[in-house]
Design a binder for these strands. Structure first.
Lengths: 139, 139
DNA sequence: CACCAATTTATAATGACTATAAAATAAAAT
DNA sequence: ATTTTATTTTATAGTCATTATAAATTGGTG
């Protein structure tokens, strides 16, 4: 239950937070703050972009979701807070989860006197969809 | 020779480019564009911040260096263009190279129909220096 | 239901970066 | 060596995601 997740974090239950968490629940599209705002605005006309940013910040800092900085200009958000690989398609600009087996690491860990609490792993290239499209259009 | 590197890339040899490449040569501090600008300005008073950005962009796109997006607000630059791990200390904000053996991957590679041409691997935590300082101040 | 701290909202501010267009210059052509 | 031309540099204005601000609203405890 989303309400309980908020309660556990000691956060007040507000319609805005519920809406944002609901939108993200099970969402694998990794939306940006603006996309979240635009998708919720019709249902919540009073919603402010600042609230979306605030809420995402609070939730990310509480470890309830994860910020993705795979694109230069914009942040994106993943409801799964556990570090895992992400992929950005250089053609269609879509973002995908991409777990690459042996690369996935448990945090925190120690290496050469560095205490690593967290990590991000970003891949860049061409997604299956665009590869397929490319191949067929080139024939 | 730095001049030859520029020639090989088909770029004109300008004092600004030489200065920037010289500053980066063997530099393991991963400076930002602004830091590069501030360090060079005294010797090259006519230097413009836009030139620093332009040059770094050109060189990065040519594969002569690497942009590091480990910090939210600012880009940093690494003269080593080969993908490798980077570490950001959450206390002193310093950036270090951090190679973690089995994690290092050869690019490009294929995985589940994704064509991965490039990747970034960013670690976050506490650097050896800050850990040491913490330990001694807490006693 | 009243209170108060937390939250939301609208808007202004920030700041890294990019675009622009004029001036300067590297290097090829003469 | 000089001319020529495309590239580069420069100063400055513009962009845009994000953050700060402060007033208005509201969730939840007593």
């Amino acid at each position: 239950m989303i309400i309980n997740r908020l309660k556990k974090l000691g956060l007040k239950i507000t319609p805005q937070r519920l809406a944002i968490l609901n939108l993200l629940e099970g969402n694998i599209k990794h939306p940006s703050a603006e996309e979240i705002y635009n998708q919720l605005k019709p249902q919540y006309p009073s919603l402010s972009l600042a609230t979306v940013y605030n809420t995402l910040d609070v939730l990310a800092r509480a470890g309830a979701l994860q910020e993705i900085r795979i694109k230069a200009e914009k942040r994106h958000f993943d409801p799964n807070p556990v570090p895992h690989g992400h992929f950005l398609c250089r053609i269609c600009e879509s973002i995908h989860d991409l777990d690459v087996g042996p690369l996935e690491i448990q945090t925190p860990f120690n290496i050469r006197d560095y205490l690593v609490k967290d990590y991000t792993l970003y891949f860049y290239g061409i997604c299956p969809r665009c590869r397929k499209r490319d191949r067929s259009s080139n024939q």
